Simulated assay, not measured.
Amino acid sequence: MSDQQPSINPATRNDEAMRFLLTRRSRPAKTLVLPVPDRAALTEILTAGGRTPDHGKLEPWRFVVLARPALERLAARAETIARADGLPDDQVTKAASQFAGSHCCVAVIGAPQQSDKVPALEQQLSAGAVCLSTLNAALAAGWGANWLTGWAATNAQFCREALGLEGDEWVAGFIHIGTEGAPPPERPRPDLTSITQWIDE
Rank of each mutant, 00 (worst) to 15 (best):
D54A: 06
G178P: 07
C104I: 09
R68A: 10
V65D: 06
L58P: 08
W170P: 01
T134S: 13
A107N: 07
P119E: 11
E180N: 11
R189P: 00
E122C: 14
N9A: 09
G49P: 08
C131Y: 04
S126E: 08
S194F: 00
S126A: 15
I195S: 12
L46E: 10
T193G: 14
Q98P: 00
C159T: 02
I175E: 05
L46H: 07
V108Y: 04
A120D: 15
F20E: 04
G167C: 00
E201F: 08
A127M: 13
G110H: 12
A138R: 02
S7Y: 11
A162H: 03
L192H: 12
K117S: 14
L46A: 10
E166V: 12
D116Q: 14
V33P: 02
W170G: 08
D90V: 04
I195F: 09
R27E: 06
R77G: 14
V65K: 04
K30S: 09
N155D: 15
S7F: 11
T43C: 08
E44I: 14
P119R: 11
N136P: 02
A82S: 01
Q113T: 07
P37E: 06
E166F: 00
H55L: 11
L42D: 00
A41L: 10
P88Y: 05
P183H: 10
S194I: 00
A78M: 04
V130F: 08
A162L: 07
G49C: 09
N14S: 15
P6A: 03
A75M: 05
Q5L: 15
I8G: 02
T31D: 13
C159W: 01
H55F: 11
P37W: 04
T31M: 03
T179H: 12
L32M: 02
W61F: 14
S133H: 15
A76G: 07
S2W: 01
A107G: 05
Q123F: 08
S102Q: 04
R73N: 13
L58W: 09
P184V: 11
L58R: 09
S126N: 04
A75C: 05
T43H: 12
S115I: 03
N136C: 11
W147P: 00
R24D: 09
A96Q: 04
A48S: 15
A17V: 15
L163T: 06
I175K: 03
C104Y: 10
P112H: 08
R83L: 10
M18P: 00
T23S: 13
N136Q: 12
G128I: 08
T31P: 02
L46G: 07
T179C: 09
Q197F: 12
C159F: 00
L192Q: 10
L165C: 03
V106C: 05
L192A: 13
L125N: 07
F174S: 04
A95Q: 03
W147N: 01
I109C: 08
R187D: 14
P37R: 02
L74V: 05
D116H: 13
R13D: 14
H176V: 14
W198Y: 13
V118P: 07
V36G: 01
S115R: 06
A11W: 12
G150S: 06
A96W: 01
A48P: 03
Q114M: 11
W61Y: 15
A141M: 03
L148V: 08
S26Q: 09
N14V: 10
F158L: 05
D38W: 06
Q5D: 10
L46Y: 08
I195C: 15
F158T: 00
P37G: 05
S26F: 02
L87I: 04
E72F: 11
T52C: 07
W61I: 10
A137I: 06
G142Q: 09
